[in-house]
Design a binder for these strands. Structure first.
Lengths: 352, 352
DNA sequence: CTGTTAGCGCTTTCAA
DNA sequence: TTGAAAGCGCTAACAG
């Protein structure tokens, strides 16, 4: 009932091997023969059987892109760019189409591992891991082991926006300079004259969270304000609700805050909402800053001061790396810097 | 080198068939035998070969979720919910883990078809299509044909936020009442006293665009304002930039606009930015309304009046439908209503 | 440049 | 309840 390669071969009056060759385009075939085969494929409306081909070739055309939260544009932009780069890359030779798919871990270590196993089962050609990693010794070890196995089976591993992991399993790691960005952002506030700065951090166990916070702390400490940092930091998740709640908590701990730095733009938006409800004007009464520079950040009122990360470019590069169409950076690691975007949500602190 | 099912069988001193049976859990196996097999799997760190299993069983555990724009939370929320529902659904029996993956078409009909072919190759267990469809006769026909083939091969097809298509290929269609929502939104403005209302629409060929616009027109026509609608409508894409540009264009055509309705919240945000640059206050000088009620919409200033769509719930339901764990609605079609959320971006028009 | 021949690793009747 | 054996549809040597 379902059309197989053998049917096409029969119709084109060639051997199955020849049909396979024209379909994969990786072997010399006479033009006239190819023509005939292609016609037969069309007439029979033949669709290659992926599993069969993957089984025989011991590799598939699946490329997995893991994200922590698919509803967050931070990941959506990177994933979309990677997927686009992977789709484009295949546009050339016939049959080279890769199936780039994104898998949503929801930030759960278990699901991350599960997806990796599922991808391993499918004999994925490559895997791209985006965003911060969870820093739990057990999970880190399990991930290292799993990645080693994947790499060992021929799967390319690319990290995007995630710190490199030890071992030689990784093809390439594109990591964001979260620390540097965090530091420059706080320095900007310090320069404006702020001294009591609250920090709404992400989940404590995430590398992204830790690095951004470390940057903030480094700036505070350099300004002789290191003692207060602990008390003025509140952890949450990377969503608006978290920014809202944490801001109220911070205000409770220190009502005289003159600025709030948020783990990312979404959190900053929640922080702004909380401040406004408290009757505080931004930036006259209190300054707010975010991180990432998501598309909406320039449009909100007041426009958000933040650190721009070239998410699209990084994702696209990760996609090319996964395809093998771009040579990995030296030692496999590239650090991508962020750019401080000063806008209207930050200003001089109010004289009191 | 790589561990196969046969290795596990040897180690557990049973036949390969038995191992397969305990792994798939769909066949009676003695408890002690199962125990032994599971232990062997663990000891050997065995990972099932997906392609081989898919080839033999003529079906895979892949479920594809197609989205128009993965960087847009509208799709991210639905896709995340669907993926979650699919992951959860498998938590029960062993081996039932489905690999739910999202594919980003970028709104391109060709890529949509390409992804469907790729999924067809993989013998996907199900496909979920989210968001508006492109209304081009050629593409509609090609899609219908492709979906019919997929369904014929045993792939379940679920539509989420997309109008049902004729034929019996579809397992279920969850469609949003875009028309009703659009109508109520404009009626709200009309009730406030607005008469010159601009409409920033999405891409002309998208069903979502057409339905929302039809709702708007119905309300305008009912109010005796139908004549002007054409002139006061500008088409664009579903992003902020488009909202920004179209708003300026609309203002050019009709400087006395008292309200602008946007195709979605993101576009509304861009519209707000343009209006503000023009020195117009919202809502004192001009009202603005969006659609979807994305998470940020309640936080922007002024908070956006919009139509809330239960994106998460719809996505989760689509996921369950794709898994076959929820019975399809009568005739396979369910219409999901939107809720008018009146917030601060709309108000009475200024007296002039 | 093209055909022949073995499998790839798993599932699934059919027997036992 | 378990085993034996026959493929699933394709690719990749190896000849020719």
């Amino acid at each position: 009932m379902t059309v197989t390669l053998a049917d096409v071969a029969a119709r084109a009056r060639v051997s199955p091997a020849t049909v396979s060759r024209v379909l994969n385009g990786n072997y010399p075939v006479a033009a006239s023969t190819r023509e005939r085969v292609l016609r037969a494929v069309d007439e029979l409306d033949y669709v290659l059987n992926g599993p069969a081909s993957a089984l025989a070739a011991a590799t598939s055309d699946l490329v997995g892109i893991l994200v922590n939260d698919i509803a967050d544009p931070f990941f959506g932009i990177m994933a979309g760019a990677a997927q686009h780069a992977i789709g484009e890359g295949a546009a050339g030779r016939a049959g080279g189409e890769k199936l780039a798919v994104v898998c949503n871990t929801g930030g759960s270590p278990e699901r991350e591992l599960t997806y990796l196993t599922l991808l391993q089962r499918q004999r994925a050609a490559a895997v791209v891991l985006t965003g911060g990693a969870v820093e739990d010794p057990g999970h880190t070890a399990a991930m290292a082991a799993k990645l080693a196995k994947l790499a060992n089976a021929g799967t390319r591993i690319v990290l995007c926006g995630r710190p490199p992991v030890p071992g030689d399993a990784i093809t390439a790691a594109l990591t964001f300079d979260n620390r540097g960005g965090g530091r420059r952002l706080t320095e900007h506030l310090l320069t404006l004259g702020h001294r009591r700065i609250g920090y709404v951090a992400g989940p404590a166990e995430r590398t992204t969270t830790r690095h951004r916070l470390e940057g903030h702390r480094a700036a505070m400490t350099a300004a002789g304000l290191g003692g207060d940092v602990e008390r003025l930091t509140a952890h949450g998740t990377y969503d608006r609700r978290s920014g809202y709640d944490a801001t109220l908590e911070l205000l409770r701990r220190e009502p005289d805050l003159t600025a709030i730095v948020a783990a990312n733009d979404t959190v900053a938006l929640g922080a702004c909402a909380a401040l406004r409800e408290r009757g505080l004007r931004i930036p006259q009464d209190i300054s707010v800053a975010g991180f990432d520079d998501l598309p909406f950040s320039v449009d909100v009122v007041p426009a958000l001061t933040t650190v721009r990360l070239p998410l699209y470019e990084a994702g696209a590069r990760a996609g090319r790396l996964a395809m093998g169409t771009e040579v990995p950076p030296p030692r496999g690691i590239a650090t991508i810097g962020g750019e401080l975007m000063v806008r209207s949500s930050t200003g001089r602190p109010r004289q009191r």
